[in-house]
Each structure stands twice: as C-alpha cells, then as structure tokens.
C-alpha cells in the first residue's frame, strides 16, 4: 500500500525513539519507512565495511530492516534506537560470517578457536565489487578496505563501529553485547593491526616512519 507523502513528511522531524514508539504502538508503516530512510545508508555502510561485498551488504541491510519489522516488540523504549539497530545489524553480520565460515571450514578444523587464534587467521578479501575503485583517488579507500578485511571479525566490527560509524565505546559495548574493556582492547588491537597493514601506504605518501623507541 503506497504511503501518503504528507504522512511521511509529518514524521520527518520526529526523533528515532518517537518513530519507534509510533511503529510499536500504532503499527505505523510511515514511521517504519522514515526509520528505514534515515538508517539505510549507515547500515549499508557498516555492513559493507564488515563483509567487504556490496551485494551481500545490501542483502544483509534488508535482513536488518526485516528483523526490525518482525521484532519491533522487543525494543525497549529506554534504549537508544540507533544502538539497538546496530545490535541487529551486528548479529545479522555475525550470522552471515559464521555461515560463510562453516561452508569454507574443513571437517578437521571444526574445533572452536580462541580469539588469539582467530587473530592469526587472515581472510582473503572479496573484491568482487568495491565502489571505492570508481576513481583513482579512492585507491587509499580500497587499500583500507582490504586491510579491514584482513582483521579478525571481532576486531573489524569494533573498529568499524568506532572509527567509521563513530559510535561511543559504551554504545559499541551495548551493540556488540561485549564488556567495555574488551571493546577498548579490540579497538586498540585493530588499529595497531591496521597500522601495520597500511604502513607501506603511509610511507609511500608521507615518507618513512621513524623507528619506535
């Protein structure tokens, strides 16, 4: 059923939590549409940076908004809507990642690996579609995406949520259902790893980094 433009316009100024209340209590599809329009770009961005494939990112973003529709009753009005939505997106991305890993896993390596071991596991980046390749100046962006894809998923999601999506540490802890200290540690380790992976690029641009004391 097409929504009336006037209805959507009237909700344009409402904040996320008000829209969510409307959607929850009155099943307002207009409120849902406004939320989708507001968040589709950041969610696609987060998922693209996480999975490294544009089509997968779009599909997972749809799955995120489907879950928002289906599980709207689980949203607590005391929560921040954006954090709750990122929790859904993170879970969707993790499920996707687990399924993909299960497919690729050999039978003898089915033992659960620790975070340290996961860190050692580097994955081959999927560069089937990188919007960053559209212009030459985006070469840096492409290199950064490739470096991101080489991070273990738990580090990757933390650094994307912090440095790209600009969520606070507390919000990341809530969205990823992880301890605050663990979040901070993951972000630091992810940044260090990215630094190592992108050192040659930095040196290419700015010259050699002096050795650490």
């Amino acid at each position: 059923m097409p929504l009336r433009a006037a209805e959507l316009k009237s909700l344009a100024d409402a904040d996320d939590e008000q829209l969510m209340a409307l959607f929850q209590n009155e099943n307002s599809e207009a409120a849902y549409t406004v939320l989708v329009r507001r968040y589709k770009s950041p969610i696609v961005n987060f998922l693209y940076r996480f999975v490294g494939n544009y089509d997968d990112a779009l599909d997972l973003a749809q799955e995120t908004f489907l879950r928002l529709y289906k599980y709207k009753h689980t949203y607590e009005p005391t929560q921040r809507f954006s954090t709750w939505l990122y929790t859904i997106a993170t879970n969707v991305a993790r499920t996707f990642y687990r399924q993909r890993r299960r497919l690729a896993e050999l039978p003898f390596s089915s033992l659960r690996r620790s975070e340290e071991e996961e860190e050692a596991e580097w994955e081959i980046p999927d560069t089937s579609y990188l919007p960053d390749t559209r212009v030459d100046s985006d070469y840096i962006a492409q290199r950064i995406q490739q470096a991101l894809m080489q991070l273990p998923p738990v580090f990757r999601e933390a650094v994307i949520l912090r440095d790209i999506m600009e969520l606070s540490y507390e919000e990341i802890a809530e969205a990823t259902q992880t301890e605050l200290g663990t979040v901070k540690s993951r972000i630091n380790r992810a940044r260090r790893r990215l630094q190592e992976l992108l050192r040659d690029l930095y040196e290419e641009l700015y010259g050699r980094v002096p050795d650490q004391p």
């Binding site: 950041p42 696609v44 961005n45 544009y54 919007p131 985006d138 962006a141 790209i164």
Partner: peptide, 10 residues
C-alpha cells in the same frame, strides 16, 4: 582515513 571512507550508495 577511516572516517573519510566513501559511503556506498544505496
């Protein structure tokens, strides 16, 4: 650089 990464179009 991370903050300046292009946002994929929807």
């Amino acid at each position: 650089m991370l903050q300046a990464l292009p946002i994929p179009t929807v």
